[in-house]
Amino acid sequence: MSAEDLLVRADDLRSGRTPFVLATVVRAERPTSARPGDRALVLPDGTIEGFVGGTCAESTVRVEGLRLLETGESTLLRITARDEAGMAPEGMVRVHNHCLSGGSLDIFLEAMLPALLVQVYGQAPVARALVEIGRVLGHDVRPLPEPTTPLPSDTGAVVVASHGRDEEPVLRAAMRAGVPYIGLVASKRRGAAVLADLELTDEEHDRVRTPAGLDIGARTAPEIALSIYAELIALRPRTAAATEHPHHLPACHADE
């Protein structure tokens, strides 16, 4: 795959909301088959498209790439055929791979995850503010045109801000789809009444956040929208970046 074809493929993956890791060789110490500027894509199923070295380097890039798809981090990966004393510098993952024929590779791994997909139902000022502010934050925010509109499988959040109109079918659809964040813009009293009418289990009840958003004293529509995104940020998984991997990968038979 040529460099141009690989970048076209990366654009196609982005447009299709498919996560991937872009691996770029930034340093190569001989003997290695890769050269600075070589690139590859790591897909969620472990497929590697492109070239960043032989089987030994590829196996390491696959393992680290899949890890980064889980954490959303990016890092500099150093693959060496020998142990290096001391801790890896901050921001670097260092892996000793016995099967390398020698030399070392520095490969920058950049996690390319699709933006959080937020579906907003309603035409009220809060709904409009959710669309505007969410896009400024870099989220993929889409107004939900109808309560029966199917939700994409990778929807990360559904917020209902319709002030009583068609709330129940949207909430039920979000629960059936397993959407991680479901928010209902309503007062505590009205929100509790809506959930009671849904006859939810305790687990389902806990999945719907109403009033949606953190209590920051919000009054205006933009402030309410901001409080909801603040809650989304507060609830997202937090990971600590690894700085060194002391493990050794098993030897393989291909030469670098």
Score class of each variant (00 low, 15 high):
Asp255Gly: 15
Ala225Arg: 07
Asp38Tyr: 04
Gly65Tyr: 06
Met1Phe: 10
Ala221Lys: 13
Arg176His: 11
Cys56Phe: 01
Leu116Asp: 03
Gly86Met: 05
Ser187Asp: 07
His248Asp: 05
Val208Ser: 00
Ala192Val: 02
Thr60Gln: 11
Val208Leu: 13
Ala192Pro: 06
Arg219Val: 13
Ala111Val: 13
Gly122Ser: 14
Ala240Trp: 08
Thr18Arg: 15
Gly134Pro: 04
Thr210Cys: 11
Ala241His: 15
Ser2Leu: 14
Gly183Glu: 05
Arg236Ile: 01
Pro147Ser: 10
Glu84Leu: 15
Ala124Arg: 12
Leu117Ala: 07
Thr220Val: 07
Arg236Met: 12
Ala196Gly: 13
Cys99Ile: 08
Val63Trp: 00
Arg207Met: 11
Leu116Thr: 08
His98Met: 07
Ala192Leu: 06
Leu144Thr: 07
Ala193Pro: 05
Gly50Pro: 03
Val61Tyr: 00
His98Tyr: 04
Ala124Thr: 12
Arg209Cys: 05
Ile107Glu: 00
Pro147Cys: 07
Leu105Ser: 04
Gly46Gln: 09
Arg62Pro: 03
Gly91Val: 04
Glu132Lys: 13
Asp106Ala: 03
Gly86Trp: 09
Ile48Glu: 01
Val126Met: 03
Gly65Asn: 11
Pro222Asn: 12
Pro250Asp: 03
Ile233Gln: 15
Cys252Phe: 08
Gly102Thr: 09
Leu235Trp: 01
Pro246Leu: 00
Ala254Tyr: 05
Pro36Ser: 12
Val118Phe: 00
Ala242Met: 06
Ile107Arg: 01
Ala241Arg: 15
Thr75Asn: 03
Arg27Phe: 03
Ala129Val: 04
Ala234Ser: 15
Val208Gly: 01
Leu13Asp: 11
Glu90His: 15
Met112Asn: 13
Ser227Phe: 01
Ala40Pro: 05
Gly53Gln: 02
Glu256Tyr: 11
Ala193Val: 07
Arg9Ile: 04
Leu198Ser: 10
Leu117Val: 09
Arg238Ser: 12
Glu70Trp: 01
Gly138Trp: 10
Ile182Ser: 13
Asp154Cys: 01
Glu110Met: 12
Ile182His: 08
Thr32Gly: 02
Asp106Trp: 13
Thr148Glu: 14
Pro31Gly: 09
Ala111Leu: 07
Gly16Lys: 14
Val8Trp: 09
Pro89Cys: 11
Phe51His: 08
Ala221Leu: 08
Pro237Gly: 14
Ala242Phe: 00
Ala225Lys: 09
Ile107Leu: 00
Ala240Thr: 15
His139Asn: 15
Leu100Glu: 01
Phe108Val: 13
Leu69Ala: 02
Val160His: 01
Gly122Ile: 04
Thr32Lys: 05
Ser162Cys: 11
Gly86Ser: 14
Leu198Val: 12
Val185Ala: 06
Gly46His: 12
Pro152His: 12
Gly134Leu: 07
Leu109Phe: 07
Gly91Ile: 03
Pro180Asp: 14
Arg165Glu: 10
Val63Gln: 09
Arg39Asn: 01
Ala212Asp: 00
Glu203Gln: 14
Val208Met: 03
